[in-house]
Simulated assay, not measured.
Amino acid sequence: MESKLTKNEIKGIRVCLGMSREQFAKLLNVSADHIKQTESHRARSYNVSDKLDQLVKSKLEELGINLEEILESIYRLEKLQERVRKSDC
């Protein structure tokens, strides 16, 4: 079973696509507020909905974009950012 996308992954996918929240929302046919709320770290009780998870996955597939490659890029970037943060201490 494929795992559900996380808030960070949703934001990372949007950023990798070079889209604003508004552009990403329009692509998925959802409100920009929904994307903002989903990406928000402060809204801890607000998880990625099943519907948004499936919308993102199906839209990427429709566009011929490999989700696994994007996620791998996001993970590599997060590791790099963590190393930079640690070196600043």
Rank of each mutant, 00 (worst) to 15 (best):
M1G: 10
K4S: 10
K4F: 07
L5C: 02
L5H: 05
N8H: 10
N8V: 02
E9K: 07
E9I: 05
E9V: 01
I10K: 02
I10Y: 01
I13M: 04
I13F: 05
R14Y: 06
V15K: 15
L17P: 09
G18Y: 04
E22H: 03
Q23G: 03
Q23L: 05
F24T: 00
F24Q: 03
L27Y: 11
S31D: 14
A32V: 03
H34S: 12
H34A: 14
I35F: 07
E39L: 03
E39T: 01
S40L: 08
S40V: 05
H41Q: 15
R42M: 08
S45V: 07
S45P: 00
Y46N: 12
D50Q: 10
K51S: 13
K51P: 00
D53V: 00
Q54E: 15
K57T: 09
S58L: 10
L60T: 02
E61G: 08
E62N: 08
E62R: 06
I65R: 02
N66E: 14
N66H: 06
L67K: 03
I70E: 07
E72L: 11
S73T: 12
I74N: 08
I74W: 00
R76E: 13
K79T: 09
Q81N: 15
R83E: 14
V84R: 12
V84T: 10
K86A: 09
D88S: 04
